[in-house]
Write a protein that binds this DNA or RNA. Structure first.
Lengths: 134, 134
DNA sequence: CGGTATCCCGAGGGATACTG
DNA sequence: CAGTATCCCTCGGGATACCG
């Protein structure tokens, strides 16, 4: 009996199927949200659309380079929509697409798990890093 | 009104708090599961404990080096337990800790999202990559 | 069987300066 | 304001060989 039958099944999806080892669509979706900034940006856009500068200020430790690049990636994947208003100076608004919004719940579950258990993890690390026995 | 108040709140957790920009515990938990192999290994251990060699065979495209390294990382974080049986030749069993098992549900939700929507994402990418207008 | 030890490469990503 | 363009460097991770 599996302690978690659903994910044990789901693992079949993650395993390399057939002979092509890299052709797993779930893996590259995970790769996207696994990069350094994507989840942070999605979270920053969860509440409302925001402009480039507003995102830059909301996440102070991102560079403009990575901000642009990550937003482009999310836009390419259809998770974020980009709207340009031809004002002077130009203003560009980013908002979650419907697809992006459907990602919020899974992310929320994950982030809550992380928030609840990061203390346990920190303790586990300390234990592990202790000099075993002098 | 926020379309997703809970995560909009949760985003406060992700924002750099105080003056120390990197000191966000949730971020490094995400960094762990964001690496190339951790989720795959957790999924592989969801059903039952497995030995080193079994994991190697279950995930054919991982190297022994990364298998060891990722397992160590998961063990360090207290997500995986490692048991050595002093047989000859030695056998080592890896199993999810209780903490690791509590991560299964969040992961499952995420993986199911990815499985359901990867087709939409693939289509969005094709559209985005089309030469805009000749 | 279950790992270490090395070597090495490319991509991810930071810093800075420039532009429409 | 909202980006590009460069330069540069770390480091995740693959390949290979060896070990108790």
């Amino acid at each position: 009996m599996s302690p978690h039958p659903k994910l044990a099944d789901t693992f079949q999806i993650l395993e390399t199927h057939g002979d092509h080892p890299i052709e797993c669509p779930v893996r590259d979706v995970l790769a996207r949200i696994g990069d350094k900034w994507s989840v942070l940006l999605i979270a920053a856009l969860a509440g409302e659309p925001r402009r480039f500068g507003a995102l830059d200020r909301a996440i102070p430790d991102i560079s403009k380079r990575m901000l642009t690049q990550t937003l482009r990636g999310l836009e390419r994947d259809g998770l974020v929509e980009r709207n340009v208003f031809p004002t002077k100076p130009p203003s560009v608004e980013y908002r979650l697409s419907p697809l992006g919004q459907r990602l919020l719940d899974p992310l929320c579950v994950l982030i809550e798990w992380a928030d609840e258990h990061h203390a346990s993890i920190a303790m586990a690390r300390e234990r592990f890093d202790k000099p075993p026995r002098p």
